[in-house]
């Protein structure tokens, strides 16, 4: 039976974060008993964002398949129920944006969504058109964050997106890369352009971002989104073949997903990690990382060494 006081407290937390007004997590039947507050990170405008988000690469590209669409709606509902907000997609992800739009309309209400998508076109004049396309597909009046995907025609798109931000047509602007590519170029954009977000691959199996991008993000006050936190599933599949270590459980980590994600969001420069899944049970596992104690520096080092030895 949901505890109304806890639910109210939870709503107040989200409302304070500028995310949950009018939407009550747990309203879809999940038990809302909690022991810990959500782990959130401050954004460049001072608002707060839950530190675990959701990616949609592959997982939400299901086309018009009604059975698969219903499954993805359940995944998104579980995400919101667990306190998630940031959902990241791209026009490059096939039907993912349209499937998200369908899921959002099925869920209804006013979920605490932080909508992040991307501009991905070599046409330098198509920036506003792609933003409008994302708004249409998601069924939203305004996207929270638009990013230049994989630096495609980035100069023109970034200039247009920044103009749109100034006009209030977007909240935030960012750039993305993945698989550890083009970090030097990303770094130079982070230095020279007034962007709010940068997104790059960061996981326990790929810590390249720790060398330059994360320190620079921290220095410049740029929010950092860690994509591919499970390395496309390969990392979590690999660690799940081994027993979960007792010392990690004693440190407050619940499962391997919690382990891999908390390692990331414990980095002071990481704003949000965005694992992707097509399964509700995996979503719930992922979202355990949104609560509970974060590992300190020494524990993070132990986590690295343990995974390296597996």
């Amino acid at each position: 039976m949901p505890d109304p006081d806890l639910s109210r407290r939870r709503l107040l937390q989200l409302a304070a974060a500028g995310l949950g007004a009018g939407w009550l997590p747990g309203a879809f039947g999940q038990d809302t008993h909690e022991t810990n507050a959500l782990i959130t990170r401050r954004l460049p405008d001072g608002s707060e964002l839950p530190a675990i988000g959701m990616g949609t690469w592959i997982t939400f590209n299901v086309g018009s398949d009604p059975e698969a669409r219903a499954g993805r709606t359940a995944v998104l509902r579980a995400f919101f129920e667990a306190g998630g907000a940031l959902v990241d997609s791209s026009p490059m992800y096939g039907s993912s944006e349209a499937v998200l739009g369908h899921a959002l309309s099925e869920i209804g209400g006013d979920p605490p969504l932080f909508a992040a998508s991307k501009v991905w076109t070599p046409d330098e004049d198509a920036t506003a058109e792609q933003v409008a396309q994302s708004e249409r597909r998601w069924g939203l009046e305004r996207m929270d964050l638009m990013q230049v995907h994989n630096l495609v025609a980035w100069e023109a798109h970034l200039a247009h997106l920044l103009e749109m931000r100034e006009e209030g047509r977007l909240r935030f602007v960012g750039i993305t890369t993945s698989h550890g590519r083009r970090h030097a170029e990303i770094e130079s954009i982070m230095r020279d352009w007034p962007i709010d977000f940068v997104q790059a691959s960061y996981s326990l199996g790929n810590r390249e971002a720790e060398r330059r991008l994360l320190p620079l993000a921290e220095e410049r006050g740029i929010a950092f989104i860690a994509n591919r936190p499970f390395q496309g599933g390969r990392l979590i599949d690999r660690v799940k073949r081994h027993p979960f270590p007792d010392w990690a459980r004693e440190a407050g980590l619940a499962n391997w997903a919690d382990y891999l994600l908390k390692f990331l969001i414990a980095h002071p420069a990481v704003t949000c990690a965005i694992p992707a899944t097509s399964r509700v049970d995996h979503m719930r596992e992922n979202m355990t990382a949104l609560r509970g104690p974060l590992p300190d520096k020494a524990l993070r080092q132990r986590m690295v060494e343990h995974v390296r030895g597996l």
Partner: peptide, 26 residues
């Protein structure tokens, strides 16, 4: 060079299950 550094699987944008579902639906 950037393109060549991708694995083929990195460029795949759908899952095996969803690909198989195409045939069921057809």
């Amino acid at each position: 060079d950037t393109w060549l550094s991708y694995r083929l699987a990195d460029l795949l944008m759908f899952s095996p299950a969803i690909y198989a579902r195409l045939f069921e639906r057809l």
